[in-house]
Design a protein around this nucleic acid. Structure first.
Lengths: 240, 240
DNA sequence: GTCTATACGTGGATAGAC
DNA sequence: GTCTATCCACGTATAGAC
């Protein structure tokens, strides 16, 4: 099991194990943990900032002093998710594994981290289309999260010898596929079982395509198209 | 140019050309048109129901009598978009065209319809992760829209002879790709120019992959994986 | 059934005193 | 950093006019 950052939200009373924090950091952590508990239990929309403040035994204004908005709490959650995911993948890649194993670990570990937070993931997707919104996963305010999210796959692909353009495209493509996984998982009522099966199948397909496009006969057909897609994604800062 | 349903929102004073409507239908159309104008001009979140009612010269209660919520207005907009798109594609496919032409028309006509409504599209994406929400494009309440959206590609692919599993998967895959196009377009600041280029490149790649996977040598490798993906998507009612 | 006018409860977010 | 008081908008409800 993973004993990383996220457990701070799941287990509020282990602060003595962590390095000493300022009062503000403690209050922030308390709000975060309490809020996530309420979100998981009742759902994001139903839970009010008044509920959260009351459950923390503090005033509404205090909660807002530490988090600009209710969505900002979810943003903090997702930052922690990404942090934990990155460290799990890096740790795994310090040992030798084949590509399939690496990719499966990258996908499955992400899934494990968010396993019980379907309701929270839905909120993260909410502003996907508002480029202006600070919480849009495609917006400027979250570029560091996209960076970390694609870096994970750069790590997993580090030992592979891919054609030049694929080398640049693949991490973003896998990141996008991972977003698709989360989207499917959001609507998965089997507790993630179906999602895991889909990931396995999708990765198998992706690996086959990867091998295909690397073949000398096919590569010249695909390369110019990939180059074009590459440049257009870069124009949007969607490619990291 | 397309003189279909959507123009009712863009041009409010051409009611004499349309078939006679009940008073309620006229009021509904007026609210819809006025609201869309305000959404486009000021943005969805900033515009209030009171703004809309005031701009229509009616009471707030009247607006709510015709639309359950502010989001419901956007839902009505998207219904009309899908209706117009379907009829444009069907019309185009009554004449002979090759597959590339058909797919490009399907993608580009959708883009043309929503060309000036980036802000509205963002709102449609907002509930993508809330399976329960009536406006989620993956939810039960919008299954008819997904059906119409994939049917469009069934029409475009009707003349093609594809392997069995691809035949079922392809329309959903293209529908998903089209959603990706809309997502990219949302963040496109070139007025859709970059989006068009990306669509062209993506379709070229998709057609190449389609040809590849149809080849006898490759098909046995891909078929079992496609079958698995197919069954998992069906389990979610994501496949139509 | 359609529309007006008005008022109310709820919840997100803010201002300003301490 | 914290709390109290307040604002604003959404959505709902109600009573009455046509």
């Amino acid at each position: 099991m993973n004993m990383f950052k996220l457990n701070a939200f799941k287990n509020t009373d282990q602060s003595q194990l962590d390095p000493p924090k300022s009062k503000a950091e403690l209050t922030r952590a308390q709000i975060l943990g309490t809020a996530l508990g309420l979100f998981r239990e009742k759902g994001f929309d139903i839970t009010t900032m008044r509920d959260i403040a009351a459950a923390c035994g503090m005033a509404v204004g205090t909660a807002y002093h530490h988090f600009d908005s209710k969505e900002a709490i979810v943003a903090a959650y997702y930052e922690a998710v990404q942090l934990e995911h990155s460290s799990l993948v890096i740790e795994f890649n310090q040992k030798k594994h084949n590509l399939k194993q690496k990719l499966e670990q990258a996908f499955f570990s992400k899934l494990e981290i968010v396993q019980h937070d379907q309701k929270l993931l839905g909120v993260i997707m909410r502003y996907i289309g508002d480029a202006e919104h600070p919480l849009s996963i495609f917006g400027a305010h979250t570029s560091h999260l996209r960076q970390a999210g694609t870096d994970v796959f750069k790590v997993a692909l580090a030992d592979e010898k891919l054609p030049e353009h694929l080398n640049e495209l693949a991490p973003t493509a896998f990141w996008a596929l991972q977003m698709g996984m989360l989207l499917y998982f959001l609507h998965d009522q089997s507790g993630g079982e179906k999602t895991k099966k889909l990931v396995t199948a999708a990765l198998e397909l992706a690996l086959q395509l990867l091998k295909l496009t690397a073949q000398p006969l096919i590569q010249p057909l695909v390369t110019p198209v990939l180059r074009k897609i590459l440049s257009l994604l870069k124009a949007h800062a969607l490619l990291m």
